[in-house]
Every structure is written in C-alpha cells, then in structure tokens.
Design a protein around this nucleic acid. Structure first.
Lengths: 192, 192
DNA sequence: GTCTATAACTAGATAGAC
DNA sequence: GTCTATCTAGTTATAGAC
C-alpha cells in the first residue's frame, strides 16, 4: 500500500480498522471521517460511496496477497519447501495485516454483485497457487494428496485462523506456529 | 431446538437464516417479521430486542454443541477414535446447521458485553473437551502434540470451514471429508 | 480539499386497538 | 398474539460556501 500518507490512504487505513472492529454495516462514515481528521461530507471527495471504500480495500489486499505469495515461493524448486513457505506467508500476512485480511475473508457478502465477482476471481487465483504446490508435490514427490482442493482449503482456513488468537507477547513466535502447522500438513504427505 | 413450530421458533429459524446471509447488523426486523409471517411490531411480543434474538440463537447453539460433542465421544475409550469422532461431529454439525454455526462463529462482536461473556464461556467449554482428547492421547498413547491448544484450534478452524464450500451434490460425503481431515491430523501424532 | 447544512431514508422500538 | 401507526435516532449522500 506504498506508505503514502495522503488523506485517501489514511481513510483506507482507518476504514480497515473500523470495518474489522465493528463490521462494514455497523461502521458509520462520520466516525470514519473523524478518525481520518476530516468531517463527514469530505469523505465523498475521495470516494464515491462507502461501498467503494470496501471494494478498494479488498481488491488491493487480494492483489497484494497474490503477488506476495508468488514472490515467497518463487525462489524454491522443492514442493515441500514451497508448502512450508506458503504456510508461513499465509499465517504471517494474516497476523501483520489483520484488519485487511479479516475484512477480505469476512465481508464478501457485503460487496455488491460486480465487486463481488472481481474479488472472488482474485481469491480463486490465490487458491490456485496453493493448489499448484500440492499438484507439484504429487507429481514430483508422490505426495499422498487424495483431494488437492480439500488440502488447500484446510491449509487456508487453519492458517487464517491463527490471527484470531495470536499474541506477540505469547510464548510462540509466528515462525514457531508456521513450522508446526507446516509439519502437521506434511506428516501425512509422504509414504512411510 | 425441539421441532416445535411455535412462532417463536419460526422467528429464530428465519433470524438464523438472515443473520447468516446478511449479517446481524444488516438484518432488519421488518424483513425478519415478514418472513416469519407477521408484522414488524409483533416481533416484540416474542423477544425484547434484536439483541435478544441473536443471543438466544448463539447460546442455544453452543449448549447443543457441547452436549452433542460430549455424547459423540463418550462411548469410546480410545483417544484416536475420540478424535476421529470429534472431527466428524464438528464438520457434520457445521454442515447440517450452517446458519446457526456460522453465526455462532462469526457474530461474537455484535453481542453486548454480558451476553458476550456467557457465550464465550460456553465456547471455551467446547474447546476444552477437544483439548481433553489431545491430552489423553498424549498421556495414554504418547502423541507428539507439542502444543495442545494449537492443535485444537487448527482442528476447530479447518473443520468449521468445510461448511463454506461443502455441497451435498459434490463428490465427497461428509464422512469422506471427516476421515481425510482426521487422518491429516492423526498422521503426525504417532512416532514413526 | 475541507467545511456546514440538510435532504431523503431506514431502522429499532413503543403504544394502543382488535 | 397480531395489527397499524408512530416516535426517535441515526445513516448515506448531496450541495454549495470557503
């Protein structure tokens, strides 16, 4: 999101925070404006509607997730290592950007039809990248993955959930958790 | 929820449906009333407020989940079998009662403080039952569970997510999915 | 680019008739 | 137990001044 402190960026940031805390519907633009240092009506100089703010937030997050995941796994050729990195990335991204990711996971139903389709398409792209890792593992290392989509969904869901309880003061680092989850997924993949 | 077709029950059922579809905040009581076959104002003969409807729904669901999970694992003494049954139960319950469970997982932030504490307490009870299975496995069968809470959360999150994509027309039955997920969790538990 | 004022609307909740 | 009518408050979005 290019640390640009334009008012537009400030509004998006504060919106992410409020949408997560209260939900999209329960967030009112007067409070969003106040937190962004302006008056209610001024929001409309930057965005056409509340819906547009939600869409921009989700669309940007999905794009960033696709790019970052791709970059994270690009430098390895080993499917098992790619999987470990994907788990690590997915957990870390959800913890470091909890507002954006929570909204992107959770506010789909509040998108208007057109926007919904656009965001869903990117979400599918993201899933396909992870499915590709399982497919490569199956072909190159004979992983015992009976259903690739099933494993992909399990991975995404259990990793995304970490951010709901993770604490930086807690006993486990992000890397600890990522390693344990990656192990948990990998244990069953190899013949024994 | 004792298939009692009193108006109260109808309202609760329709509310579960609407809350899931649109979210608690976005659901308006006039539409809920209409779907329940009455006029807006009549809701208040059955419930004191919109909040009370949400709370009743969540509280009842949590109570039922605790009772049903307890019953499902009671008849076995083997931790691995208990785990398999817990996975199966959690997935199946989320699929067969998707409205209720979705809400219970997702609308916590819309509960008023008192109600929140009550529901959270029951949710913790539910988690502790599953933690108990891992603890027993560790003691009786030397499972390699480094962090019981971590595994419990992974289990709950990945199983709950199934209902978001499951289809009765799809290739997999609930039992198929449950078995695969249980395997996935169990593979790593035993020394090799 | 931000302000103030306000229009147009919607929602939760109440009251009293039947 | 349900209806109709209404109160009250809060919301998104617009318009025009600065």
């Amino acid at each position: 999101m290019a640390e640009n402190n334009s008012r537009r960026e400030i509004i998006l940031q504060e919106a992410a925070h409020l949408f997560r805390e209260k939900g999209y519907q329960a967030t009112n633009l007067r409070e969003l404006a106040k937190r962004s240092g302006i008056q209610g009506g001024s929001i409309y100089h930057h965005f056409a509607s509340k819906q547009e703010i939600l869409f921009q937030l989700m669309d940007h997050t999905m794009t960033d997730m696709i790019d970052s995941l791709s970059a994270a796994i690009r430098s390895s050729d080993c499917p098992a290592e790619k999987l470990r990195r994907a788990v690590h990335f997915h957990i870390e991204y959800h913890i470091t950007g909890p507002d954006q990711t929570y909204i992107t996971d959770d506010e789909l139903r509040n998108l208007e039809p057109d926007n919904y389709l656009k965001v869903i398409a990117k979400r599918d792209r993201y899933q396909q990248i992870i499915e590709g890792i399982f497919r490569a593992g199956k072909e190159q290392q004979s992983w015992r993955v009976t259903d690739i989509k099933l494993f992909t969904r399990a991975l995404i869901q259990m990793c995304a959930g970490v951010s709901s309880w993770f604490s930086f003061d807690g006993p486990l680092t992000i890397a600890d958790i990522a390693d344990q989850y990656a192990d948990m997924l990998c244990q069953g993949l190899f013949e024994r």
